[in-house]
């Protein structure tokens, strides 16, 4: 496929924003359950929620550039029964609203105790956070399923697509949370950095699994099934026109195999190798600079990763557009 930058920015930005919220909420749950004794301050939650919301808004803005008719975008909520894109369009504002509420409750300090179970005090923000967490996971699934549900794009048609959207979004969000902690509350760095490393390793395993799977795929559609002629040697001589069309522009990246391999190596270094080293350094000797490098490297790497993800999708319609004569 031809990667569209609007969609690359949309998926990476909202993935990071959702991951950042998951990081904030994980910290809160760990504290409430007394797993850790480091409590995040309301300022930390507020900054974190604002940053998360900001990323989601940027993602939404990027998505508008993908539409031919953005003024009709509201119509996209109509077909939620059948379309994962429609579901995403509904869940994205819901997540934004819930994260706004979550940040607001922390910012205003509305620590209403809703329920007490033994020593565990469940307050309002914890409840809102729970609902927001469910919404965040629904959004990850909807975003991943937009691509995973297209069965003839075999590279995308796999549960690994959804898993990778979740893991890569989460790890980028947790890394950003570590950076925010370094600015605001350095005592939280080990907690977030530790989680980031765990997620980084998981993401590496699953993204690697997806790369291996896609390398071994054999296309189900061939020129024989495409035109229905049973012969081993069929060549297209003319696609029917000599200029370009949407069919020749939108479905192929137009880059060399070498370029593709370079992007793959680049994202493996930027998403996994550099942030891993930086996070380990940050665990030993925390510094804002080190974590800023980790976060920036990871985000740039995710742009490359998403570009590669789209470029790797091999659309069967390309069989019909091979030769000009």
């Amino acid at each position: 496929m031809q990667p569209a930058f609007s969609v690359i920015f949309l998926t990476t930005l909202i993935g990071m924003g959702q991951g950042l919220f998951l990081a904030l909420y994980t910290g809160q749950v760990y504290f409430v359950l007394n797993v850790v004794d480091k409590v995040s301050t309301d300022t930390f939650y507020s900054i974190g929620s604002a940053a998360s919301l900001g990323l989601l808004i940027l993602g939404l803005v990027a998505s508008v550039f993908h539409l031919g008719r953005p003024e009709r975008a509201w119509r996209a909520a109509a077909m939620w029964r059948t379309s994962w894109l429609s579901r995403e369009v509904i869940i994205l504002p819901t997540v934004m609203g819930l994260i706004f509420l979550y940040g607001l409750v922390h910012y205003m300090g509305w620590n209403l105790t809703v329920l007490t179970i033994g020593a565990v005090v469940i307050d309002l923000s914890l409840l809102i956070g729970l609902v927001a967490t469910l919404a965040v996971f629904s959004l990850y699934i909807a975003t991943g399923m937009i691509y995973a549900c297209l069965k003839f794009l075999q590279e995308w048609h796999s549960p690994l697509t959804v898993i990778n959207y979740i893991l890569l979004g989460a790890v980028s969000g947790f890394t950003l949370a570590t950076l925010i902690a370094a600015y605001n509350q350095p005592e939280l760095i080990p907690f977030f950095a530790g989680w980031s490393i765990v997620l980084l390793v998981l993401a590496f395993i699953f993204r690697g699994a997806s790369l291996i799977r896609n390398k071994r795929l054999r296309p189900k559609s061939t020129i024989q099934t495409a035109i229905g002629i049973r012969h081993n040697q069929i060549k297209q001589k003319a696609m029917g026109f000599m200029g370009g069309s949407m069919n020749t522009r939108d479905f192929f990246h137009g880059k060399t195999a070498f370029f593709l391999r370079s992007i793959k190596s680049l994202f493996i270094i930027l998403v996994f190798a550099i942030p891993l080293i930086m996070l380990i350094i940050a665990l030993l000797k925390p510094s804002v600079m080190i974590l800023a490098i980790a976060t920036v490297s990871m985000y740039l790497g995710l742009l490359a990763e998403r570009w590669y993800f789209f470029a790797e999708g091999n659309h069967p319609q390309n069989i019909y557009y091979q030769a000009i004569a």
Binding site: L67, G68, R69, R75, D250, F251, H315, Q317, Y320
Partner: peptide, 26 residues
């Protein structure tokens, strides 16, 4: 009149039968 020009349907057609109108953006 309802199409938002998101191109998702063209991704979902294995035959490449759909083409966007670059002027009407649908």
């Amino acid at each position: 009149d309802k199409c938002i020009g998101c191109r998702y349907c063209s991704w979902a057609c294995p035959y490449g039968a759909r083409e966007i109108d670059e002027h009407q953006k649908v």
